[in-house]
Amino acid sequence: MNIEQVLFGAFAFLTLLSAGLVIFARSPISSAMALVSTFFFLAGIYVLLWAHTVAALQVLVYAGAIMVLFLFVIMLLNLGDELPGSRLTFSRILGGGAAAGLFAVLALAIARVPGRVADLGTQQESFGTLKAIGASIFTTWLLPFEAVSLLLLVAMVGAVVVAKSRI
């Protein structure tokens, strides 16, 4: 058992633990903070997968920006603790079904992963670096990248229009 496996085990356990806390915590703030720590431990797993840049972006974008906004909204609305209800509503059944379906798909996908991990080969040095990711974003994946940025622009314009009825 080498250090990588130990680290992976620790990160995976902590990811699952905090993901469970997201669901089971009573107060919305605790849920949000548990989600932040989930993102952190996921970033650790990304590092183990040689994806340093993705790990840094994960912390920067999800933990540092998006979850702060979540927290901000929860604080502003001042939501109280949620009492556990036992009623089996339609939305709960739908959500449970969707989760079970996702679990089935993921289980199938994991079952198909080959036992041996592919060798990085000549990419060993540059794999996962900022330079390699930047180069592939602006060459191979330029169109999807620009499409996503257009999507963000549309979302931004939409938010401005909704917030400000008279411009």
Binding site: A56, V59, V68, L130
Partner: peptide
Amino acid sequence: TPDFGLLYLFAIASLAVYGTAL
């Protein structure tokens, strides 16, 4: 000297807000 350099600065600096907000 991480490969992503200044991104580390932005990523970690953006976490400081949790302390104050919480």
